[in-house]
Design a protein around this nucleic acid. Structure first.
Length: 543
DNA sequence: CTAGGGTTAG
């Protein structure tokens, strides 16, 4: 058993230790395997930590993190040292506050002063690495522990599995999962199965996820409400509401598992996104009848459904009345709803209010919503001045925000502003992505700048940003609009090769040009191939 | 003292 574990960890080292990530100076375990030991055992050169504490007393407001750090310092100076359990509790409290790099930093200090670590310690620290999207370093921590006699357990492996899934390393997650079972390294339990199921759902293979649900049941590992909710949510995201409801019923009626607020919220969101507000409200009322209290996520989901139908706001009052604290998502949802119905002033008021009254700082998504809302309501100037006021921070250095403004300027008939913004990307060190290019090519098409549109199209491949289905469609439309027919056939052929399809609007333009004889009728066959089949999703529509 | 599920978004 131990030998198998050792070989597993060794084989994992090869796979996982290659990627290193130095994004955080505190992440001292971020080193290739050969260096792990030296680094972890190296004396810690105290920098901020001790100085930090000397002026702590001068701070008016001492955060909980400061308390924890102070306590840690005291603990390390005690003779004899407190038990590892005390250290674990402290590490866990720091981790619960999401100060992951701090936890890792403390762990490093623990090892440096010789506090013996146990499986709880390494599991907590492994989780910190995973939560920071540095799962490979999580493996390093596990290997470090293993060399000191700390055997990984089902908690360890579930944590690592979850880390891989968080980083979209699904193949590695599957490999690990299978290896654990084959090598009998640990008996998977409901948590581990649920984690693997989430991974499968995340890459959109719901069938396989359901297969694993059946398998765990067969193996005598009973799925619980979280297992079912994971799959139900994924089905809802894929608009397979009927299957989700089927599983929901199975869970309750056949398995005797009661749904909770998360299960209900997923269903409500699914029904909302498929436009069935009546059923969404029905489930919402039902959960209340059954004694479940909707939380901020439930309300935000329902609110979003109403906003998408341009019906809003009585629900917001209900949230306030119930004493539920709206969060940034709630605000973002309402902001978008207000812009959608053209209530820019109210939106702007709310935008200010969330910061002053509720002390909820807007995030990148908030700004995107506000910028797009203003552009859509033909208030380009306001959008631009807001954007300029945001300053040179991370919210301003956002390619999505730029793309929104570039598109907004173009649609508001200001191609000059479009070009200025696009050129600014270079100076800011931002790379246009495929959607930025699409917006630009569309803009050039609109302005009759065919040469520029073609140039950008060619640039995309060179810059490692290959055109997508939308690119081809906007370029085609630009060419057709400007009477450039020479490259149409070639583009259509390329689309065929790539499995892209023509949108309805592109298709009707093509047909118009054929009937007016500016395009050859022989193209019809090719166009026919590129029209998405009835009932099938067009491949260019994102999942 | 350790692991798993749900909200906004060009």
């Amino acid at each position: 058993m131990k030998v198998v574990a050792a070989s597993l960890i060794n084989s994992l080292k090869g796979t996982f230790f290659t990627a290193t990530c130095f994004r955080n100076p505190f992440l001292l375990v971020l080193q290739p395997p050969s260096a792990i030991q030296t680094i972890l055992l190296a004396p810690f050169h105290s920098d901020s930590a001790s100085n930090h504490h000397s002026h702590l007393t001068m701070c008016q407001k001492i955060t909980k993190l400061d308390h924890a750090l102070q306590l840690f310092d005291q603990m390390t100076q005690r003779q004899p040292l407190p038990s590892v359990v005390k250290f674990n509790q402290l590490l866990q409290s720091v981790t619960k506050m999401k100060h992951y790099s701090c936890s890792i930093h403390l762990f490093k200090q623990m090892t440096a002063i010789g506090v013996p670590v146990d499986v709880y310690t390494t599991n907590i620290v492994t989780k910190c690495c995973c939560q920071m999207s540095c799962t490979s370093e999580g493996f390093a921590v596990v290997a470090y522990g293993f060399r000191r006699g700390v055997d990984p357990d089902v908690y360890t492996f579930s944590t690592l599995l979850n880390g891989l899934i968080l980083e979209d390393r699904i193949l590695e997650a599957e490999r690990l999962f299978k290896k654990l079972i084959k090598g009998k390294l640990c008996e998977p339990n409901v948590v581990m199965y649920t984690t693997m199921i989430k991974g499968l759902c995340k890459v959109g293979i719901n069938d396989t996820a359901i297969g694993l649900l059946r398998l765990m049941d067969e193996k005598g590992c009973k799925p619980d409400v979280m297992t079912y909710s994971t799959i139900i949510d994924s089905l809802c995201k894929d608009k397979m509401i009927d299957d989700a409801l089927k599983l929901f019923n199975e869970m309750i009626l056949h398995k005797g598992i009661l749904p909770d607020v998360v299960t209900y919220s997923s269903l409500i969101r699914g029904l909302c996104s498929s436009g069935d507000m009546r059923k969404a409200k029905e489930i919402f009322d039902l959960m209340k009848v059954r004694g479940h209290v909707p939380d901020v996520v439930t309300y935000s989901s329902l609110l979003n459904g109403y906003c998408k139908k341009s019906k809003i706001l009585h629900l917001f009052h209900e949230i306030m009345e119930k004493g539920i604290k709206p969060n940034v998502v709630t605000y973002n949802t309402i902001l978008q709803g207000l812009f959608r119905v053209g209530r820019c002033k109210d939106a702007f008021e709310l935008f200010k209010e969330m910061q002053s009254h509720s002390h909820i700082p807007p995030n990148a998504i908030t700004y995107r919503i506000v910028l797009e809302g203003l552009c859509n309501n033909r208030q380009l100037d306001e959008a631009l001045s807001l954007f300029r006021m945001m300053g040179e921070n991370e919210l301003n250095l956002d390619i999505v925000a730029y793309t929104i403004l570039i598109d907004g300027a173009s649609k508001c008939g200001k191609p000059d502003i479009t070009k200025v913004l696009f050129n600014e990307l270079n100076t800011k060190g931002l790379n246009p992505d495929v959607r930025t290019y699409n917006v630009m090519i569309s803009c050039f098409g609109r302005e009759g700048l065919v040469r520029e549109a073609k140039e950008l199209f060619l640039q995309m491949e060179e810059r490692g940003c290959p055109p997508d289905c939308v690119t081809y469609n906007v370029l085609l439309k630009g060419l057709l609009k400007n009477g450039q027919h020479d490259t149409i056939e070639m583009l259509l052929q390329k689309m065929d090769e790539q499995g892209f399809s023509v949108e309805a609007s592109t298709c009707s333009m093509l047909l118009d040009h054929i009937s007016s004889r500016s395009l050859d009728g022989s193209l019809l066959k090719l166009i026919g191939k590129l029209v998405p089949k009835e009932g099938k999703e067009a491949p260019c529509i994102d999942r």
